[in-house]
Amino acid sequence: MKKEDAKRTITPELISGYAVYLWEQEKAPATIEKYTHDLKALCGWLDGAGITKAALVSWKEHLKEQYAAASVNTILAAANGFLTFCGWTDCKVKPLKIQRNLFCRADKELTRGEYVRLVRAAERAGDSRLSLILQTICATGIRVSELQFITLEAARTGRAEVCNKGKRRAVFLPDKLCRALLRFAGKKRTAGAVFITRGGKPLDRSNVWRSMKSLCERAGVAPAKVYPHNLRHLFARVFYALQKDLSRLADLLGHASVNTTRIYTAESGAEHARLIGRMGLVIT
């Protein structure tokens, strides 16, 4: 190992220091957790070798064989941020270039009908909490991590104040949802988050994810379509179909850029194909 490379070794202390730095930058806890996980994975791949540009380019090629391009870029973002933190900017690697898709994959798009089947399946299973969680996420467009901000106070006023990624935004709750939330909470509880564990803490995203997956077979919906964030995408598509207002949708979703919001409004292309078919431009 070269002498200068020995100075560029990822250590647990450096990763911990970077995590503290991210916290001071007010990054979301989930972001900090993912970045530290990715750095530990890089550390394992290096297997004691020092950080060099050549090593990281090889690691990038390894990632390309294992993950989709978007996932590779999130991992590279974690590594490049860490390199900047350490002052090793000469080793940073470029993200993959991704051409924006006009349409999402049909096998990934959750339809309104499939969403209804998931809700009904939860109700048949006697899981009223899961049924209401699905409806809360889909009817408001919130992230699963933002469920903690759906409180009894918000259900009474029809408006939740959500704080995420250093930004605050108002989330409006439909009247019908407010009534359902208050019925679910009952008369014994007067304040706090609606969805809590037996210990009284807000639900963890992993709990919601596993519960949703358990509905797939009963609801007849492909598991690849069933995860909390897909409910947020369904909210975005339905809202955009009604309003055609990307800026307002970006505000509702808490996006800093409408370019991100465009990804959420992408459909499988089936509707576009039907519209093209109705144009009547094929003569023979």
Rank of each mutant, 00 (worst) to 15 (best):
K3H: 08
E4T: 14
D5V: 06
A6Y: 11
T11I: 11
G17H: 07
G17W: 07
E26Y: 09
A28G: 01
A28K: 13
P29V: 06
P29W: 06
A30P: 00
I32C: 06
H37V: 11
K40I: 10
A41C: 05
W45G: 01
L46D: 10
T52Q: 05
K64C: 11
A69G: 01
S71L: 04
L76D: 05
A78R: 02
T84P: 01
C86H: 04
G87V: 12
G87N: 04
T89I: 09
T89D: 14
I98N: 03
R100C: 00
R100A: 14
L102R: 08
A106Y: 02
D107T: 08
L110H: 09
R112G: 02
E114N: 05
Y115Q: 05
R117V: 12
R117L: 11
G126F: 14
R129P: 01
L134D: 04
L134Q: 07
I137N: 05
C138M: 14
T140A: 07
I150Y: 03
T151W: 07
L152R: 12
E153G: 11
R156A: 08
A160C: 04
A160V: 10
C163G: 01
N164L: 08
N164A: 14
K165S: 13
V171T: 08
P174E: 05
P174R: 07
K176N: 05
L177C: 11
A180W: 00
L182G: 00
L182M: 06
L182T: 01
R183W: 05
G186K: 00
K187I: 12
K187E: 15
K188S: 09
A191E: 15
R198H: 11
W209G: 04
R210W: 14
C216G: 03
E217A: 14
E217L: 11
V221M: 08
V221N: 05
R232Q: 02
L234V: 11
F235P: 02
R237E: 05
R237V: 07
F239P: 00
Y240H: 13
A241H: 09
Q243C: 13
Q243I: 00
D245N: 15
L249R: 03
A250W: 04
L253G: 10
H255S: 12
A256M: 03
S257E: 09
V258Q: 13
T260L: 07
R262W: 12
Y264T: 04
T265A: 07
A266Q: 15
E267K: 03
H272I: 09
H272S: 06
A273W: 05
R274C: 04
G277Q: 11
T284A: 09
